[in-house]
Design a protein around this nucleic acid. Sequence first.
DNA 1: ATGGTGGAAGATCCA
Length: 274
Amino acid sequence: MPLSPAAVIAIVMKIATWNINGVKARIDNLLHWLEECQPDIACLQEIKSVDELFPRLEIEALGYHVETHGQKSFNGVALLSKKSPDEVNRRLDGDDSDEQARFIEGVFSTKKGALRVVSLYLPNGNPVDTEKYPYKLAWMERLYKWSQERLLLEEPLILAGDYNVIPQPRDAKNPESWVNDALFLPQTREAFYKLLNLGFTEAVRSVNDSDGLYSFWDYQAGAWQKDNGIRIDHLLLSPEAAELLKHAEIEKHTRGWEKPSDHVPVVITIDDEF
DNA sequence: ATGGTGGAAGATCCA
């Protein structure tokens, strides 16, 4: 007996990351994007809100569960998901004095087992001659150590977020203008590749080898109009997650919306289901 | 161009 069409439809889920640059200023865009994209899990960065003021009701009305790790004015990350996580962790080990909200991990039950998804917002690191740059490098080292431990679980793990790292010259329209920037300094890129080389797959690069892929365009100097962008928003997949990867896409069109974020969503599709 | 724009907080800091 032949398979019915329904039986051969791939069972997939979409996981997205988006630095929205202020959830309260971006709520209309966010709701519109959630309806359009229908991600199963969305990792947000720079919510710039305390947990109590996060506009959760509107998002919950679209059928999403909301977990936040916010702080006043700056930073802040969130996980939106169509099914609630079984477990949520908000601390990145290695510095008990760090009060910046840049990390949230959710553990989800899927039909294939546990799926771990992290929404991360790596420090910018500029100006590099201040304490901000050592803080960035230390944060990357903490993420490295955390990842080393998590990879021992040999489970699908996705580290999604704004890395504030331009991995290669071709990830910038004008790489020469970034040579002294914390996003592109050799030490920054080395730390990124050290993390990647633990065995992660960078989702976008693994499916698309072309130049001109960007995820951020500055508000200033007509960067968007000139397509003067950089690619700094990444999804890193453990071997067990990489095996499930079907597609990866940068949703460039959202940068052309009214009142846009300066970043756009990056979305992957994996062979899995809640 | 030594932040040119934008968000959040609150008369500045952060990116």
